[in-house]
Simulated assay, not measured.
Amino acid sequence: MAKMKDKKRENVSIASEIDRLEERRERCQDNLERAEFKSRKARLSEQERQELEKEMAIINERVQKLDKELAMLRGENRRNMVLSVALLTISALFYYVFFYNEDDT
Rank of each mutant, 00 (worst) to 15 (best):
residue 20 R to L: 07
residue 43 R to E: 11
residue 56 M to D: 06
residue 56 M to R: 13
residue 44 L to R: 02
residue 31 N to Q: 05
residue 69 E to W: 11
residue 21 L to Y: 06
residue 51 E to N: 10
residue 73 L to Y: 13
residue 26 E to C: 10
residue 46 E to G: 10
residue 47 Q to N: 02
residue 10 E to T: 02
residue 98 F to Q: 05
residue 30 D to F: 10
residue 18 I to T: 01
residue 37 F to Y: 07
residue 60 N to D: 12
residue 95 Y to F: 05
residue 39 S to C: 06
residue 92 A to V: 10
residue 4 M to Q: 01
residue 43 R to Y: 10
residue 101 N to R: 11
residue 42 A to K: 11
residue 41 K to D: 08
residue 44 L to F: 15
residue 11 N to H: 03
residue 58 I to A: 10
residue 60 N to V: 02
residue 91 S to F: 02
residue 81 M to S: 03
residue 3 K to I: 03
residue 88 L to R: 00
residue 9 R to H: 08
residue 8 K to Y: 02
residue 40 R to D: 05
residue 39 S to G: 04
residue 39 S to F: 09
residue 60 N to I: 03
residue 12 V to I: 09
residue 67 D to F: 14
residue 58 I to T: 08
residue 28 C to N: 13
residue 5 K to W: 06
residue 72 M to G: 02
residue 71 A to V: 02
residue 69 E to V: 09
residue 89 T to W: 00
residue 66 L to P: 14
residue 103 D to K: 10
residue 73 L to G: 09
residue 48 E to K: 04
residue 82 V to S: 04
residue 10 E to M: 07
residue 25 R to T: 05
residue 27 R to F: 09
residue 41 K to E: 10
residue 57 A to H: 12
residue 13 S to F: 15
residue 99 F to R: 08
residue 71 A to H: 15
residue 61 E to T: 11
residue 46 E to N: 14
residue 52 L to V: 08
residue 13 S to P: 13
residue 93 L to D: 02
residue 23 E to V: 06
residue 91 S to W: 00
residue 35 A to T: 01
residue 26 E to R: 14
residue 87 L to P: 00
residue 8 K to D: 01
residue 57 A to S: 15
residue 90 I to H: 01
residue 63 V to W: 14
residue 76 E to V: 04
residue 100 Y to I: 06
residue 82 V to R: 05
residue 85 V to W: 01
residue 12 V to W: 07
residue 22 E to I: 13
residue 32 L to C: 07
residue 88 L to G: 04
residue 80 N to K: 15
residue 31 N to I: 03
residue 92 A to K: 02
residue 17 E to F: 10
residue 104 D to V: 04
residue 13 S to L: 15
residue 2 A to S: 12
residue 87 L to E: 13
residue 3 K to A: 02
residue 101 N to I: 03
residue 52 L to I: 09
residue 19 D to V: 08
residue 19 D to K: 13
residue 68 K to S: 03
residue 36 E to A: 05
residue 97 V to D: 00
residue 54 K to W: 08
residue 88 L to W: 00
residue 86 A to S: 10
residue 80 N to W: 03
residue 38 K to E: 05
residue 18 I to S: 02
residue 48 E to D: 07
residue 74 R to P: 15
residue 40 R to K: 08
residue 71 A to Y: 14
residue 102 E to K: 12
residue 65 K to V: 07
residue 79 R to T: 06
residue 47 Q to V: 00
residue 69 E to Y: 12
residue 66 L to M: 12
residue 93 L to S: 12
residue 64 Q to I: 04
residue 29 Q to A: 06
residue 70 L to N: 08
residue 24 R to M: 14
residue 28 C to A: 15
residue 69 E to L: 14
residue 79 R to S: 08
residue 30 D to K: 14
residue 45 S to V: 00
residue 54 K to E: 09
residue 101 N to E: 03
residue 2 A to H: 13
residue 8 K to A: 02
residue 78 R to M: 06
residue 86 A to K: 11
residue 15 A to Y: 04
residue 38 K to W: 05
residue 81 M to E: 04
residue 16 S to Y: 04
